[in-house]
Design a protein around this nucleic acid. Sequence first.
DNA 1: AAAATTTCAATTATTTGACAATTTTTATGC
DNA 2: GCATAAAAATTGTCAAATAATTGAAATTTT
Lengths: 231, 231
Amino acid sequence: MADFLYNDVARQISLGIKDLPVGTKLPSERDMSVQYGVSRNVLREALRLLSEKGMLRSMPGKGVYVANDGKDKLTDRLEDLLLRNDSSLADIVEVRETLELGVMEKAIQKATSEDIHALIQLYAQMEKKRDDIEAFNRLDMKFHVQLAKSTQNPIYSILVNTFFQLTDEKLFLLTQLFPSRIDSAQREHKYIIEAIQRRDMDNGLAIARQHFNINDILTGEIKQKSYNLTK
Amino acid sequence: MADFLYNDVARQISLGIKDLPVGTKLPSERDMSVQYGVSRNVLREALRLLSEKGMLRSMPGKGVYVANDGKDKLTDRLEDLLLRNDSSLADIVEVRETLELGVMEKAIQKATSEDIHALIQLYAQMEKKRDDIEAFNRLDMKFHVQLAKSTQNPIYSILVNTFFQLTDEKLFLLTQLFPSRIDSAQREHKYIIEAIQRRDMDNGLAIARQHFNINDILTGEIKQKSYNLTK
DNA sequence: AAAATTTCAATTATTTGACAATTTTTATGC
DNA sequence: GCATAAAAATTGTCAAATAATTGAAATTTT
């Protein structure tokens, strides 16, 4: 499948920059073309591939630089796919719930004391921000991410992050916690932490189901509305 | 951001082919380059972008064709991410299990009679192929996919497909069912179908956990082995 | 007549060399 | 020392040619 030169070069470059910090400048196109023993043209096509993947960034007159890790691009790709598959917002929310339920299960099994400590700290910070809804929601997001990290499985983090972005971008206010829900949210956060500490699977999953259920927030109207992208 | 010619051309082409059926042949590179008023070089870079997105497919000596699968490209993107995040094979398997557990839950709730019929048919076909392990495994894969479809949520299909590909590519034989497991596999398939027919959540999830548990197959040795890509 | 082989045209893949536009560096003049 | 201009470096674009691959037509062989 990938039996063309530019694919080969792209693969080599991708491996070469794997461990380079973001922002590192690469050699010039001409230098790299001799380095890899191909024409500048082929090298440029390879750069196009990696740029499209989000690994590189070319700037006229400046050079080629190592870019972000591509998480955002994964979200873009998923958006493309969802667009073509007539996915509704409710579909996205549904999968997100499945993921977070899995996260809870694995977190109960594998969270380290450091993970639990981080969760407790986030809980404490949220306590202080009960009046600042915006700050509270940012911390709530961090709580979800830290929960995913507690699985010791980076893929959960990636996917949870992606689906979080997808829902938040589109629903915005709706997924945010409103004042009247802060009390119950914090109570649930506390229960979640306790369940993880006790490795209590039954209660943990029950709380998780309740806490991660965003469908209650979605009105029937929005449920029906199809997923419409407008960047 | 997209203020370069090849980006512009890529956007135009992307719009132009949006409603074309898959397999449609595009004009030759030379013709398109004059059509869009750019050099063939720029046009090729635009084609690289769209190919990377999975919208096009270039074949030497034949031409450029509309190819909107895209699912495979999502797998590629995920592979890239996993490579950078030091994900192990066990991590992938773990997430796959979470997904399929969610699939089972939603399938029990939402499978239509057509879905159930399709599952029964696949079961019957597998019965005939008990001796042909290869054919049996292909059907088993279809069974998983049909299960995902039964959720009425296209995202499950996409993700299950992606993670299936990821594991099968890397594990190959290990994830395949070997002769001694065909009996139990078919028994579980039968229970799965019955659970869906009865909307029996408790037993359904129990069976699913047992059936989708690939970890038993993985030896400890392989569990430890880090995820190594070699195409 | 049928089958195998060759030839040929069309197409993508790759190379090479050049020029334009933009940014950084250096040199110059004051 | 500083502002300005020239020069160098770099990516973007263009153009033309050669190589490699495919498919079909023409030719030869059986």
